[in-house]
Design a protein around this nucleic acid. Sequence first.
RNA 1: CGGGGAAUGGUGUAAUGGCAGCAUACAUCCUUUGGGAGGAUGCAGUCUGGGUUCAAAUCCCAGUUCCCCGACCA
Length: 421
Amino acid sequence: MLQSQLFSKAQKKVPQEEKSINAQLLIRAGFIDKLMAGVYSYLPLGFKVLKKIENIIRSEMDNIGAQEVFLPVLHPKHLWQQTNRWRYPEMFKLKSRLNKEYSLGWTHEEIITPLVQKFISSYKELPVYVYQIQDKFRDELRAKAGLLRATEFIMKDLYSFHQDEEDLDEYYQKVKNAYLKIFKRCGIGEGIYLTLASGGTFSKYSHEFQVITPSGEDTVYLCLKCKLGINKEIIKEEKFRCPQCENKKLEIKKAIEAGNIFKLKEKFSQPFGFFFKDERGKEKSVLMGCYGIGLGRLMGTIVEVYHDEKGIIWPIEISPFQVHLIEIRGKNLKIKKTAQKLYKDLEKKKIEILYDDRIDKSPGEKFAEADLIGIPLRVVISERTLTKNCLEIKERKKQQINLIKTKEFSQFLKKFFKKEY
RNA sequence: CGGGGAAUGGUGUAAUGGCAGCAUACAUCCUUUGGGAGGAUGCAGUCUGGGUUCAAAUCCCAGUUCCCCGACCA
């Protein structure tokens, strides 16, 4: 992509309206735009990151046999009355011209359960795993911290349907592992703690995936021995010790919840009367699990974790581009030609590249914007590099600047990507 | 929902009752080209409604929006 053609534009000044780091940097660098509190537009750069996160999640969901669906956002009242959740305060409600009542989806159990029920009546047809990646709406009393708590947000929600607890438990473990892979691929594998949380009426625990960072709004108690987190509502029940190893030396940390997994069991199959016939023709309740990841929140979290005073530092697999090519104009016309050639060569090799071809920007401005946008690898072509038949290479997360021979560049790239993945 | 703060060109700011100014961005031109370059010209603003006053960005009342703390949060 030519940077001269990029629709969004970086801003030098920090938007005073925003206090959270993720909102400040993402807005300044031109990834997102705020429409109102808790509601954001994704601009080309931000949308690219979002799509990358989405594709990571999609591939890991496919790996555990889940099938993608797309459910409506507009929901009828009667399904929510059936589970007694029509009164749920965070649900947006609206009326048609004929006074019919609807809500906007803030979660989809009430939609997916009757849907799956239509097709499933025998143990032979279970289990079923379906997920979607979709907008959700929650009437938050206080939207805050940029993408971390939004009124409208994109969520992946997976629902699983099983004939017995054993099958549910087994799949629950699979999802847990898939989630760890997702977070690892998004670059936050190191900072993530699987955390015990309240399981509600039907199970003792649910699990959250908590990313440790000072800007987190949740408090978790960490057992460093087990690499297990314990939620604050659980820790009192457990008398301030790790439920796994009884360790009493727990670290208290701030964290952001990046995902959660939950055994619903009969909670929704009961009110909808979702039963199946087992081998002996006996009627049994279907058991359910649900598993969520907020995509925008994940993007915001990654910015909270990976940034410095100059800007964002994207992990390579979710960076909007892999290479940021910067041309520094000089008197030598060959500079532009060389840069254009490299740009085309890399595009042919399917390397995603942002090429700063702008002729009216000073070198300093280009460097500052590159640091702000945060693409992992910066390549500079200038008078200096040209005379030496070299390219200048700088990794966003390092200080060091290296010159390498132009010929050796493609080899370098291979190594770089291998190392980074 | 309780408490606190804020609202001036696209963005960041100044003006405390008396001519709305500066920076940046944008447009045109000249110069410049390795860490947000210089000059010239131009475009662009007081959140909304009411009130006080000869005169309101400024004071008063009401509302709206945004941010922060707390409560809430499958």
